[in-house]
Write a protein that binds this DNA or RNA. Sequence first.
DNA 1: TCATAATATGGTATCGATTTCAAGAAATGA
DNA 2: TCATTTCTTGAAATCGATACCATATTATGA
Lengths: 326, 326
Amino acid sequence: MNINEIAELAGVSRATVSRYLNNGYVSNEKRDRISKVIEETGYMPSAQAQMLRTKKTGFIGVIIPKINSDSISRMVEGISDILSDKGYQLLLANTSNNSKEEIQYLKKLSSNHVDGIILIGTVLSKEHYKVMKQISVPLVVLAQHTSDYSCVYYDDYGAAKALTSEVMKNGSRPAYIGAVADDEAVGQQRLNGFLDACKDKGIMVDDDHCTNGAFRIENGFDSAEKLMKLDPTIDTMICATDKIAIGAMAYLKQAGYKVPEDVQIAGFGDSLISKVCDPKMSSIHFFYKTSGEEAANMLVDAIENSQSVRKEVKMGYQIVKVGSLR
Amino acid sequence: MNINEIAELAGVSRATVSRYLNNGYVSNEKRDRISKVIEETGYMPSAQAQMLRTKKTGFIGVIIPKINSDSISRMVEGISDILSDKGYQLLLANTSNNSKEEIQYLKKLSSNHVDGIILIGTVLSKEHYKVMKQISVPLVVLAQHTSDYSCVYYDDYGAAKALTSEVMKNGSRPAYIGAVADDEAVGQQRLNGFLDACKDKGIMVDDDHCTNGAFRIENGFDSAEKLMKLDPTIDTMICATDKIAIGAMAYLKQAGYKVPEDVQIAGFGDSLISKVCDPKMSSIHFFYKTSGEEAANMLVDAIENSQSVRKEVKMGYQIVKVGSLR
DNA sequence: TCATAATATGGTATCGATTTCAAGAAATGA
DNA sequence: TCATTTCTTGAAATCGATACCATATTATGA
């Protein structure tokens, strides 16, 4: 079934059928005939031919570092809600934290398939920027700040500082279990917020009291072990993510420390696990879903509105203070 | 940049450029000239034009009930791994548990955009089957059994029965907190497995000891409350999912019951939360990621191999027995 | 050496829509 | 009434690739 057959069956030209589909001038008489034929045949215009002709695909590429993550799936949820609402489809590209794949997808998607791209950022290298510069469709970066593109990011620094200040009301020997150091937002901003909050309190934190590692539970477990063996007087652990914090808590409990009496713990993300562990974990709530919606809206605006301008949106946070703090 | 300009710059016909792109006969001399021009211009063939001509989109539509779920994101992870490996892209359609949207997407995707569809199923209504029957591209159903299409599903019945038998070694007053009743796999199979295991032990479970509800923590909490108020002698709760079980555990603890001494609990999914709660929760491990890989492979086979036949794959399970059982 | 097969190339039709153009019919208004 | 605008229509060009066909050249083998 193509537009020619429909035209023939309805006794009109294919141009008229096209006009019917696109709300152009069509007399009521022919309008009825066409709609009847389409009804009967179940005709749907070829999306490929439309794309070729109109240069619009109706697709938005979303590049994510991994799918099975609480924060990211919440972002994608927000993106998905807005996009389907606005008539776009979501083309998902999962890079499994592989920087090369990320660049591959940026190239591949931009060159053709999509009307716009949302990049959920982790590490933005020089090569990323080189490729991004060549991209011809609008691009929005989510979860990472950048001065070159529209972006939606979180106040990681502020959140880390506020959380640390809160926690350190009842602590004096802090340590930090970090994630990937190259990650500007999670790796650096959170660490800086932690350090500055400590500094404000007159505490200088040694380098060896701040670790780095993967976004994994094991990292929390191993790092906590390393830290406590290095310095058993540590009484506070700020962890870059809830998952890492869960790992740290597991080690501490196993090693016979009491949480929060001996060591208090806090994480980031306000994820489900932070609420079901024992004691419940203090954390930072970021508005992941909302930020996804925000990014999607910005992108659609950039696509549909030619004089749309670059924007930076910094999302706020909320401290969630529960059992893992004294 | 299109194929004509490349052809002109290289001093060949566009047919030759096309052959170059598709590994047809091209002399080394022209091959070099073309590759040089493509290198210089950064030309990428229009995916739209290729789709129109070849009738292959390179897209697989994946319809999911919700994105922010541990089990589903693991399935999608598996799907994504295989598909990107085989050169397909993943077109994600999130229905937010909305049956109408699901049917919308089935229609929309099949009519054009994609080479195949994976439907992560929840409730398969008559209307679903009606629409599915009209679909022209291969379809694989994941997470739900169906006799009409290739499917990958879990041994929900067997798992529930085995888990219940195990748990009931040290219990005598069981109850069941279920999820959506219309969901064949999670709603019915798991319940039946539970009931049959009880029956095998000579225990008849009253209807009012089996509840239904949403896939949410709150359901677990509320149902546990209802059940314990109805019958304080209940000593065992089998919950349709880990999330529901977490809710039940939360109620029990809050109401002063000891877990597992007073009431033992088990869930399904072997999710992260089941491992970080206190006590750790006994659960069923399903091979979600592997099942996603399986479904993706089946679909790709159906697309690329014309004599491919319908298959049913029932995935096994593993009992994870930890602290929440006596 | 001659028939056949393999390699190489370009011209042209085609996929299925939209868009411009030209032109006729109907409605409007001065 | 006649000029002008607003509807209405179909023919033909176009988007950017691939596929078939015809044809020319080179290799192979009996």
